[in-house]
């Protein structure tokens, strides 16, 4: 069996203050599995544990409990990082280096020979459209260019696993699309990509699967389609609609809302919906449009965070943790599914 590109099991991390008087649980039993060639998004509000998870994967910090492995190797082994490319948020590639020198230094630190680095550097910088700047000092780069170079540094040794923290930060819209294309291409070639971003639209456009972290736990995980699946909410346009009809709808237990000349119906299932249509037609009204509403990832995310009833930044005090949410690679649990019905609709926002 091919090992998962990234496998995290029961990961816990507790930070203690100087004399151990106050303990903060940053991770409370996180399970994740990212397969080779998968584009995986890690979401969560500030302090949810995203960065801590990535730092543990890179050996920058150590887990209090649980296991983490990259390509089957425990993260404590430096060899596990041989095939890992990392783009940290707010990275500082030394300004005194040129792009070529930076790629050369970081490439050699990953065990590459100079000839391969030279070839790969030109190839990557051309792809990222900064080839003309190859011999310019990094300190002269704009933020977007620095970000592109950071991505080149992460890709220079053709890694099997890419960990990216806000990769499109500061990059113009065209550049973002190019970066997305590069990530998709890497994934097609078998690279597992773990994307950590606050730009939910970016994740939605790029990733195959996502996990939402909340207070150090996986609050939800699944494919984008699963998470933003059609909610039991429908948009209905019909004429005429009078209040007595709406009262009739409500009497069946349906949620009814008038929005910009149409109705927003919350129903329990398809039969319920059909019953409402029958009532409409029986009342002499004509249904001209009926469409299921779809939540955006942002809707799902906001609902999840609101559902926690606590918008405070940071982890929770350490204590007995809830059992971690298990995230399978094929079918994901959706413990928040009930919240989807209250999801704010993307189309409404428009």
């Amino acid at each position: 069996m091919t090992p998962a590109a990234i496998e995290v099991s029961g990961l816990r991390k507790t930070y203690a203050s100087a004399f151990g008087r106050r303990r903060i649980a940053a991770l409370n039993g996180v399970d994740l599995r990212v397969a080779p060639g998968e584009l995986f998004g890690l979401l969560g509000p500030n302090g949810a544990g995203k960065t801590t998870t990535v730092k543990i994967l890179l050996g920058l910090t150590r887990a209090t409990a649980g296991t983490a492995a990259i390509s089957g190797l425990p993260v404590g082994d430096p060899e596990s990082r041989r095939r890992v490319g990392y783009l940290p948020e707010g990275h500082k590639i030394p300004g005194y280096l040129t792009a070529r020198q930076a790629l050369s230094i970081f490439g050699r630190m990953s065990g590459m020979d100079r000839a391969t680095i030279d070839r790969r550097s030109v190839e990557l910088l051309e792809k990222l459209r900064i080839a003309a700047w190859i011999d310019v000092k990094v300190r002269k780069f704009s933020k977007g260019m620095t970000q592109r170079l950071g991505l080149a540094c992460a890709l220079v040794h053709s890694p099997d696993v890419l960990l990216l923290d806000e990769p499109t930060d500061g990059v113009d819209p065209v550049g973002r699309r190019e970066i997305r294309d590069i990530l998709r291409e890497e994934a097609r070639n078998g690279t597992a990509v773990l994307l950590n971003s606050h730009l939910l639209s970016e994740i939605e456009l790029t990733c195959d699967r996502v996990a939402v972290l909340r207070k150090g736990e996986v609050a939800a995980a699944g494919t984008i389609d699963e998470l933003t699946k059609k909610s039991p909410k429908f948009k209905m346009v019909a004429t005429p609609i009078d209040e007595s009809l709406l009262a009739g709808f409500r009497s069946t237990g349906a949620g009814v809302e008038r929005v910009n000349g149409h109705l927003l119906l919350s129903v329990t299932d398809a039969e319920h919906l059909n019953a409402l249509i029958d009532r409409t037609r029986a009342a002499g009204s004509l249904v001209t449009e009926l469409s299921p509403m779809r939540s955006t990832l942002e809707d799902v995310f906001v609902d999840l965070i609101k559902a926690s009833g606590d918008s405070e930044v940071g982890g929770a005090d350490a204590g007995p943790a809830r059992p971690p949410v298990s995230v399978g690679s094929a079918s994901a649990e959706l413990p928040f599914a009930g919240n989807l019905s209250s999801a704010r609709n993307h189309e409404d926002a428009q």
Binding site: G59, L60, P78, S80, G85, P88, H91, I93
Partner: peptide, 15 residues
């Protein structure tokens, strides 16, 4: 050890 720099070095396969 500066933030943003150490990550770049420690993410390489070097003890």
């Amino acid at each position: 050890q500066e933030k943003g720099t150490i990550d770049l070095y420690l993410s390489r396969p070097v003890g």
